[in-house]
Nucleic acid binder design. Structure first.
Length: 678
DNA sequence: CGCAAACTAAACAATG
DNA sequence: TCATTGTTTAGTTTGC
C-alpha cells in the first residue's frame, strides 16, 4: 500500500509505527517549557523570583528617567534633522518618531515612539514596562483633565444660563441632579484610578516625580478607567457629529503642544476619529503601514490597501479611495461597534507590548544575573575565555546584521534600529521546538533567536511574523503538544493557524510545506489510526536530524556537559557557560550595543544548538553515542527544571496553555495574499 | 566553492 | 468531479 511503503521508506527500519514512539525518547527536560508563559513562578525558583523582583524594583526606579532621556535624545536628533511634525513619521523606520517637547516631564508617548523604543531595544524590560504603565496613566489623566474641564464648563454654562433665565426650576433641578450624579461618578472613578495608580506605585511601576506640575492628581481628574472614559467621552460629545467631534475635541485636547495628535490619539482619536491616521494596528510590527499619513498621502490609508478596507474584520472591497472613504464613514463611523473594535485592536497591541516587556524583562534579568552591566562601556576581561571566540562573535554578527557603529559609552542611546518584529522576542526555552529557522533571517528581519513558542505564543498568535523555526520543528511541536502525541494533518494545520498568525495566510504554500516535511523527514511517522492516519514524531530521528552546528567549539559543549548535565537548572548552565566562556567577548565586543539582546540570544542559541544535537535523550540507547552526549538538550530556560516532571514520559509536553478545542474548527483557509505584509 | 538543510513550487496519485 | 492527503522531484536560498 502507499501508506505502508511511505512509512517504511521513511522509518528506515527504526521508526516506531504504533504511535507510542514518544515513550523512551521523550526529551527528559520537557514538560516545563510552558509553565512560565505568564510569568508565574514555581516553588522551585521562588527564590530566584524574589531576587528578580527586588532587582526589578530597583531597576524600575530608573526606568522612567532612562526612557525620558532616551526620548529626549531622540527628540534632539530629530530636531536636528528637521522632523518636527508628529505626522511626519514616514519613510524612516529608524528615526521617524517625533517627540513632543517636554519629554522631561511625563508625556504620553506616541505609538510610533513606543515602536521605536521597542525596535531599538534601548530599554530594559523594566523600563519598557514602566513606560507602558506610565503612558497608560498619563493618557488617562490627560483625557480626564480635558474631559473634566469640558464638563465643568458645560455645567457652569448651563447653570449660568438657567440662573439668568430664572425660570424652569424643573430643568434647574435636573441639571443639579445631573451634576451631582456626574460628580459622584467621577468620584467613583477617581477611586478606581487611585487604586490603579497606587497599585502601580506599589509595584514601582509608576514614579510620580516630585515637582511635576504636569501631573497634578486633581481630585476629579483621576479615577477614570478607559472604558468609562470612552463612555463619558461619547456622552460629552454626543451632541456633535462624529467628524466635528473628532475635530473639536482634538483641538480641545491639545494641551501638550505636539503630543496630542500623536499620543493622545492612541486612545482618544482612535475612539473618536475612525480616520485617525495612527490606528495602532500592530504598530510594533507593521511600522511602514502606520507610517503612512492619511493626510499626506491622500490615496494611501492605513486602513486601505489593495482595494480592500482593512478595518479589522471588514475586508470590504472598495474600488477606489473615494469609495473607501465613503465606506469608512458609513460602515466604520463612530459607534459602539467601531469603538469596540478599536478597543480590541488596542488590546492586541497592548498584549504585544506587554509580551515584549515581559520577555525583555527576562533578558534583562539574565543579563543582570550574568553580571553584564549594560552601563559599562567595557567590562573587565573575564578570567576564562576558553571558548572559541569565533563562534560567539559570529553569532553576534548574525544576530545583529543591521547594527551600526555607535558610541559604546551610550549603551542606551537609540542609535539604530536593530530589528523589528520578532527581534523583541527573547529567546527562551523553545526546547521542544528544536532547530530554529535561520534561512530568512535577513529577509524577514528575523533575528537569530530560538524564541519560545510557549513563552511567546501570544506574540506569534497575534503578530504576522514568521516564526524563526523550521517547519519540521513546528510540526514536531504541534504533535508533541497534543495529548496523544499524534495529530492528523488537518490538526497540524489547525495548530499552525492557531499558534501563528503568520500561517493564517498563504495557506497553500505552508500547507504544502507541511505535507512535504511530513513526508520527507523520517522523524515524522504516519500511523494508521481508527479515525484515519495520524502523524507522530520519532524523537530519535528528529534528534538525528540536527547537524553539528558548533563542531569547532567543543570546549563549550564539554563545559556544558561536564558541569550541568542531566537536567540541572539550565539557566545555571547557561550562566556558567557564559561566565566562563562568553562574557569576555560579550562584554568587550558588544558592550553597550543595543544588540545585546540579540547577542545573548545568539549565544544561547548556540548553546541550544550545541546541546540539542549533541545530546541524545536521557534514556537514549542509540549506538554510537558517547556518554558525554547523553545530556539533556539545553534549551536554555529561565527556570529550573523539575527532575521528576522531566522524567515522566508525558513530560514532554504540558498542555497548560494549549486548549485542544480552542477554535479548533476555526478555519484560516487561504486568505488573499497580502503582499504588503511581506 | 561545495555541501547540506530548509524552503518553495509543482506534479502526481490515492482516497473519500 | 473535487478537495484532501501524501509522495516525490526540482530548483532556490542560506549557512557552514
Amino acid at each position: 500500500m502507499m501508506q505502508e511503503s511511505g512509512t517504511e521508506t521513511k522509518s528506515n527500519g527504526s521508526a516506531i509505527q504504533n504511535g507510542s514512539s514518544g515513550g523512551n525518547h521523550l526529551l527528559p527536560c520537557a514538560g516545563l517549557r510552558e509553565g512560565r508563559s505568564n510569568g508565574e513562578t514555581t516553588a522551585a525558583d521562588a527564590g530566584a523570583a524574589d531576587l528578580a523582583h527586588v532587582q526589578q524594583q530597583q531597576q524600575q526606579q530608573q526606568a522612567l528617567q532612562v526612557a525620558r532621556q532616551l526620548l529626549l535624545q531622540q527628540q534632539q536628533q530629530q530636531q536636528v534633522s528637521g522632523l518636527k511634525s508628529p505626522k511626519r513619521n514616514d519613510k524612516q523606520p529608524a528615526l521617524q518618531v517625533p517627540v513632543s517637547v517636554a519629554m522631561m516631564t511625563p508625556q504620553v508617548i506616541t505609538p510610533q515612539q513606543m515602536q521605536q523604543i521597542l525596535q531599538q531595544q534601548v530599554l530594559s524590560p523594566q523600563q519598557l514596562q514602566v513606560l507602558l504603565q506610565q503612558q497608560q496613566a498619563l493618557m488617562l489623566q490627560q483625557q480626564l483633565q480635558e474631559f473634566y474641564k469640558k464638563q465643568q464648563e458645560q455645567l457652569q454654562l448651563q447653570l449660568l444660563q438657567q440662573q439668568h433665565a430664572g425660570k424652569q426650576p424643573k430643568e434647574q433641578q435636573q441639571v443639579a441632579t445631573q451634576q451631582l450624579a456626574f460628580q459622584q461618578q467621577l468620584l467613583q472613578m477617581q477611586q478606581l484610578q487611585q487604586q490603579h495608580l497606587l497599585s502601580l506605585q506599589r509595584q514601582g511601576l509608576l514614579t510620580i516625580q516630585p515637582g511635576q506640575p504636569a501631573l497634578p492628581l486633581q481630585p476629579l481628574a483621576q479615577g477614570m478607567i478607559p472604558t468609562e472614559l470612552q463612555q463619558l467621552w461619547k456622552e460629552v460629545t454626543s451632541a456633535h457629529s462624529a467628524e466635528e467631534t473628532a475635530g473639536s475635541n482634538h483641538s480641545s485636547l491639545d494641551l501638550t503642544t505636539t503630543c496630542v495628535s500623536s499620543s493622545a490619539p492612541s486612545k482618544t482619536s482612535l475612539i473618536m476619529n475612525p480616520h485617525a491616521s495612527t490606528n495602532g494596528q500592530l504598530s510594533v510590527h507593521t511600522p511602514k503601514r502606520e507610517s503612512l499619513s492619511h493626510e499626506e498621502h491622500p490615496h494611501s490609508h492605513p486602513l486601505y490597501g489593495h482595494g480592500v478596507c482593512k478595518w479589522p474584520g471588514c475586508e470590504a472591497v472598495c474600488e477606489d479611495f473615494q469609495s473607501f472613504l465613503k465606506h469608512l464613514n458609513s460602515e466604520h463611523a463612530l459607534d459602539d461597534r467601531s469603538t469596540a473594535q478599536c478597543r480590541v485592536q488596542m488590546q492586541v497591541v497592548q498584549q504585544l507590548e506587554l509580551q515584549l516587556a515581559k520577555d525583555k524583562e527576562r533578558l534583562q534579568a539574565m543579563m543582570t544575573h550574568l553580571h553584564v552591566k549594560s552601563t559599562e562601556p567595557k567590562a573587565a576581561p573575564q578570567p576564562l575565555n576558553l571558548v572559541s571566540s569565533v563562534t560567539l562573535s559570529k553569532s553576534a554578527s548574525e544576530a545583529s546584521p543591521q547594527s551600526l557603529p555607535h558610541t559604546p559609552t551610550t549603551p542606551t542611546a537609540p542609535i539604530t534600529p536593530v530589528t523589528q518584529g520578532p527581534s523583541v522576542i527573547t529567546t527562551t526555552s523553545m526546547h521542544t521546538v528544536g532547530p530554529i529557522r535561520r534561512r530568512y533571517s535577513d529577509k524577514y528581519n528575523v533575528p537569530i533567536s530560538s524564541a519560545d513558542i510557549a513563552q511567546n505564543q501570544e506574540f506569534y498568535k497575534n503578530a504576522e511574523v514568521r516564526p524563526p523555526f523550521t517547519y519540521a520543528s513546528l510540526i514536531r511541536q504541534a504533535i508533541l503538544e497534543s495529548p496523544e502525541k499524534q495529530l492528523t494533518l488537518n490538526e497540524i494545520y489547525n495548530w499552525f493557524t492557531r499558534m501563528f498568525a503568520y500561517f493564517r495566510r498563504n495557506a497553500a504554500t505552508w500547507k504544502n510545506a507541511v505535507r512535504h516535511n511530513l513526508s520527507l523527514h523520517k522523524c515524522f511517522v504516519r500511523v494508521e489510526n481508527v479515525k484515519g492516519a495520524v502523524w507522530t514524531v520519532d524523537e530519535v530521528e528528529f534528534q538525528k536530524r540536527r547537524p553539528q552546528k558548533i563542531s569547532g567549539n567543543p570546549s563549550l559543549i564539554k563545559n556544558m556537559q561536564s558541569s550541568h548535565a542531566y537536567c540541572t537548572p539550565l539557566n545555571a548552565a547557561l550562566q556558567a557557560s557564559m561566565a566562563e566562556n562568553s562574557i569576555p567577548l560579550y562584554t568587550t565586543a558588544s558592550m553597550g550595543n543595543p544588540t545585546l539582546g540579540n547577542l545573548a540570544s545568539a549565544i544561547r542559541e548556540e548553546l541550544n544548538g550545541a546541546m540539542e544535537h549533541t545530546n541524545s535523550n536521557e534514556s537514549d540507547s542509540s549506538p554510537g553515542r558517547s556518554p558525554m552526549q547523553a545530556v539533556h538538550p539545553v534549551h536554555v530556560k529561565e527556570e529550573p527544571l523539575d527532575p521528576e516532571e522531566a522524567e515522566g514520559p508525558l513530560s514532554l509536553v504540558t498542555t497548560a496553555n494549549h486548549s485542544p478545542d480552542f477554535d479548533h474548527d476555526r478555519d484560516y483557509e487561504d486568505e488573499p495574499v497580502n503582499e504588503d505584509m511581506e
